[in-house]
Computed example of a mutant assay.
Amino acid sequence: MHKLLNKLFAPNEQALIRKDLTEIGKQRLVRSSLLILPLLMAVGIPFLFLLVSVFAPTEQLSDVEQFRALLGTMLPDVDERGQMFYVFTNFICPMLFVMIPLMSASVAASCAFVGEKERGTMETLLLSPLSVRKLFQTKVAGCALLSGAITLISFLLFFIVTVVGDILTGAPFFFNLNWLVLVFLLSPALTVLGITFLVMISGRAKTTMEAMQVSGYIVFPILLVFIGQITGLFLLSWWMLLLLAVVIAAVDIILFNLGFSKFTAEKLLS
């Protein structure tokens, strides 16, 4: 992280990012949210489902029949345990995984933006050598880097758990084109969405906790897309996820520009 900061940012910008990261690390609630949620979504729930898939009695796995329509194929060479774990990792885990970049970005941004007002440090920040534009861009970049690192580490842990599960249950290797688009295109777009949305509501939020609570509403529209797949309404393909990433990226650009227009010294001090 240190070498990356040196390459991408000037010394003043690096100092601001380190300050934000330090403040995030000091707040127990924020720190816990950035650790517990990703571990739960990427490791905890998949591991519990792996235990169920491996050790549950075969007769209790009969419910997998209702999910076979989601597979498109019957996976004739895979038994119930493998089919059950395959359905979980390819149709339920993506819904869990998208929450990581969204919520980690929102939590980090709530501390970086609203936290300045809560701590009464906004006046000091505006006296720094950085312009208001640079302050805004640097804070957004710092939150995005932190959220991106959390998302990547979460996926690596999820990858390990799932590969072990594929071996134990005999399920096909989970990583496909859908996951490629989800991890490397949709997740970054969701990261920026979480940050820019938080910037939009930061003027109304008085505390970091309030901002974190309000930012949770942004999760629901995204989850509805994946819930539609789980309920069998449609099947998300790689090109649909790519289209979703493009749409969210367009929204990111709009919210970024709107957020910057609100990030002025007058409004920040009001």
Rank of each mutant, 00 (worst) to 15 (best):
G142N: 15
L190T: 06
V140T: 10
L125E: 10
S202N: 08
T207A: 08
S128C: 07
A149E: 12
L186W: 02
L152W: 03
T124Y: 15
I195Q: 07
L190C: 07
T151A: 13
E118P: 06
R133G: 13
F113E: 03
G203P: 00
K117S: 08
V219E: 12
V183K: 00
L125Q: 07
P221Q: 01
L135K: 05
F158V: 09
V140E: 09
T151R: 12
N176M: 02
G203E: 02
T124N: 14
P221D: 04
G170E: 11
G203F: 00
G120S: 09
N176K: 03
A205Y: 11
R133N: 13
S215R: 00
N178H: 02
V132W: 14
L125D: 10
I218C: 10
V163W: 12
A141Y: 14
V164E: 02
V183Q: 05
L146A: 07
Y217G: 03
P221V: 01
K206L: 12
T169W: 09
I222R: 00
V181L: 10
V161Y: 13
T191K: 00
K139N: 13
R204P: 05
V161S: 12
F226K: 01
L224K: 02
I150P: 05
G115M: 06
L180I: 01
I150C: 09
M200I: 09
A171L: 07
G148S: 13
T162V: 10
L156C: 03
A141V: 07
T151V: 15
A141M: 03
L185A: 04
G165K: 02
T169D: 11
L152R: 01
L130N: 04
G170A: 11
F155Y: 09
A171N: 07
I167F: 15
L146K: 00
S215I: 02
I222K: 02
G120A: 08
L127F: 15
L125N: 05
M212N: 05
V192Q: 05
N176S: 12
L193V: 02
F197R: 03
V181P: 00
V163P: 11
V164K: 03
I195N: 06
F220S: 07
Q213D: 12
G203N: 01
V225S: 12
L186Y: 03
Q213F: 13
V225D: 14
R119E: 10
F113R: 01
L130V: 04
T138D: 01
A149M: 11
I222F: 10
F197C: 05
C143Y: 08
L135R: 01
S202V: 10
M200R: 03
T138I: 06
S147V: 12
A171S: 13
T138P: 03
Q213S: 15
L135A: 04
A141C: 07
S187Q: 01
K134F: 15
E123R: 05
L177C: 04
T196K: 04
P221W: 02
G142H: 14
S131T: 11
M212W: 06
K117N: 14
L198G: 05
S131Y: 06
R133F: 14
M122I: 15
G148F: 15
V164Y: 04
L152S: 10
I218D: 01
P129G: 09
P188H: 01
R133I: 15
S147F: 15
G120I: 06
V181Y: 00
